[in-house]
Amino acid sequence: MIAAGWEFANRLLGRGDATIAVPPLDGALKPNQMLEQATPLFECAAPEDLATDGARLFLADGPRLLAIQGGAATEVRVFEQPISALACMPGSGLAVALGGREVRIYANLADPAPRATFATGFSAVNALSPTREGMLFSTDGSTTRGVHEWASDLMELGRTGRVYRLDPADGTAKVMANGLHYVFGACAFGEGALVSESWRHRLIFIGRDGATRIVLPHLPVYPSRISPAAAGGYWLTAFVARTLLIEFVLREPAFRERMMAEIDPQYWIAPRLSSGASFKEPLQGGHIKTMGMLKPWAPPRSYGLIIRLDPQGLPLYSLHSRVDGSNHGVVAAVEFGDDLIVIAKGPGRVLALSLASLEKEFGA
């Protein structure tokens, strides 16, 4: 009863979950052009995720598993479904999520059959990450939408995300938390996992007992995959950005229902991994060309962002591809050798940034 009263008051006054305010990109999130200045390694049709064990670097490109070496990619294996997530396991093992509905763990990539398979109850597995005990964290973004239907889940205010802990030794899959607002990324953090809860724009900690706490709230973006940094801390990707217009649409159920029923999904008032390719795209308020130029500070329909976090999960600095850039839809970033390797899914690019240059630029 009390909760219902607070919800009514928030809707009446436009505060709490009812506010359409978006935090500014400022402080550690101050915009720059670092992702636009990154070195392009190559382009591919459907880059999705990266995984490394320090000695090898793998890339998921649709159903193809590629090994990256010396700025070139070599096909290692082709699966019968698109790869939706990757993770390197201890030893020479590799975990692969296929179509968002199945997770296979291979002891060796040459093995024809997986060491363990998890295929019960998954709908949108979008990230995998090994635990310190040799198990695997898995984020299942939604139980009602597939792995590539994230925009629909956002427009439906989805809150069916789940975090699993998979045990290859006995084949068990334990739900650590459910009822989350689209989870997209996890990484070992203390005695549990650091998890991206995308539609609530925050990072949360989930303990082994399922207890949760907020680590980083009120982000101006929708966070996604997380990977560890060798110097301590983490790299957090953000696959799309928030805007006032989209926040307003999310609070108008009648409009959203008609939009989803009558309009082609690529033209919804919703975030995208890339934008600017069609005149049919909805106007985004200030996201209009002025004197033939799209201003970098215009409201973004698509954006590129990576946030460097400290060991406590707090931002140190960030790397941007702004509205007038093209390296948008950043879904994965991992350290490999002397570089940070990045997937900009919007243009289908794999990028590299020198870790030494980032240290020099930001002093962290």
Rank of each mutant, 00 (worst) to 15 (best):
R11A: 15
G16H: 08
G27Y: 10
L29C: 08
N32T: 12
P40A: 10
P40D: 10
D49P: 06
D49Q: 06
D49V: 02
A51N: 04
L65I: 05
L66N: 04
Q69E: 15
A73T: 03
T74W: 04
F79G: 04
S84F: 01
S92N: 14
G99T: 08
A107L: 06
A110I: 03
A110M: 07
A119H: 02
S123W: 07
N126D: 05
P130C: 10
T131P: 10
D140R: 00
T143C: 08
E149G: 00
E149W: 00
A151G: 05
S152C: 01
T160Y: 07
T160G: 08
R165P: 09
D170T: 06
G171P: 02
T172G: 08
K174L: 13
H181A: 15
Y182M: 05
A186T: 07
A188Q: 15
G190M: 08
G192Y: 11
L194V: 02
V195S: 04
E197K: 03
S198H: 03
P217W: 02
P220K: 05
W235T: 02
T243K: 09
L244C: 10
F248I: 11
E252M: 14
R258C: 02
E262M: 03
P265M: 06
Q266T: 12
G286F: 12
G286C: 14
K289R: 15
P296T: 13
A298L: 11
R301Y: 09
S302D: 15
I307P: 07
Y317G: 10
V323H: 12
S326K: 15
V330Q: 03
V331E: 01
V342P: 01
V350A: 08
L355D: 01
K360I: 07
